[in-house]
Simulated scan of single mutants.
Amino acid sequence: MADGLILRVVADGPVTDEELAEQARYLKDHLNQVPGVEATELVKEAEPGTRDPVSIIFGALTLAVFSYPTAKRAAADIRHLTEVIKRYQDRNKGKRLRMSLPDGTEIDVRDVSEKTLTEVIKAASVPRQGTPAVTQKVDGE
């Protein structure tokens, strides 16, 4: 589906696609306020013969976390990102977040501590290919 992190809003009970989409958009707005993070709704190609070229997967976001600053992006404050995710989880009882890592591993966010979640996001965040990282000067260079 996607090369980066995927964050899904999962309901513990029956909900409509519209409710999941609304919850995902709410979370996306908060995630996009964190420097170095780009959250977008996850889309896939529509089935052949349909009019829409893409379809939104309700309740799912792709999450690009930039670990190195680039010319246009700051490095993400991963601790702040983790706090946003955990606060969303705390405020929205009856809904939980599930994170899919690039290697296919899935994590239920409510089952991990902020510290563990921070480490998981750090490990999964790498600069995008084709996006040069700003070189860091080492003493003596």
Rank of each mutant, 00 (worst) to 15 (best):
R73F: 00
S125D: 07
V9Y: 01
V134H: 08
Q136A: 12
E114T: 09
Q129E: 05
T40P: 00
L81Y: 10
V10D: 02
A21I: 07
G13F: 02
S125C: 11
L97E: 06
G94E: 01
E38D: 12
Q23G: 12
P35V: 05
A133G: 12
Q136W: 08
K137N: 07
D139P: 14
T105D: 01
A11G: 06
P48C: 04
T105E: 04
D12M: 03
E106C: 07
A46G: 14
T135E: 15
D108Y: 12
P48S: 07
V134N: 08
M1C: 12
D77A: 08
L61S: 04
V138P: 00
Y88S: 11
E106W: 02
A74F: 03
D103H: 13
Q23T: 05
L81Q: 14
D3I: 10
T135M: 14
V84H: 00
V112D: 00
V15I: 07
R128L: 15
V138L: 09
A76H: 02
N32Q: 05
A64C: 06
D77Q: 07
D139V: 12
V43I: 10
P102F: 00
S55Q: 10
A124V: 02
S55L: 02
E45R: 15
M1R: 13
M99L: 15
S100I: 01
R25T: 01
V112Q: 00
S113Q: 10
P132Y: 02
Q136C: 06
T70P: 09
T131K: 13
L117I: 10
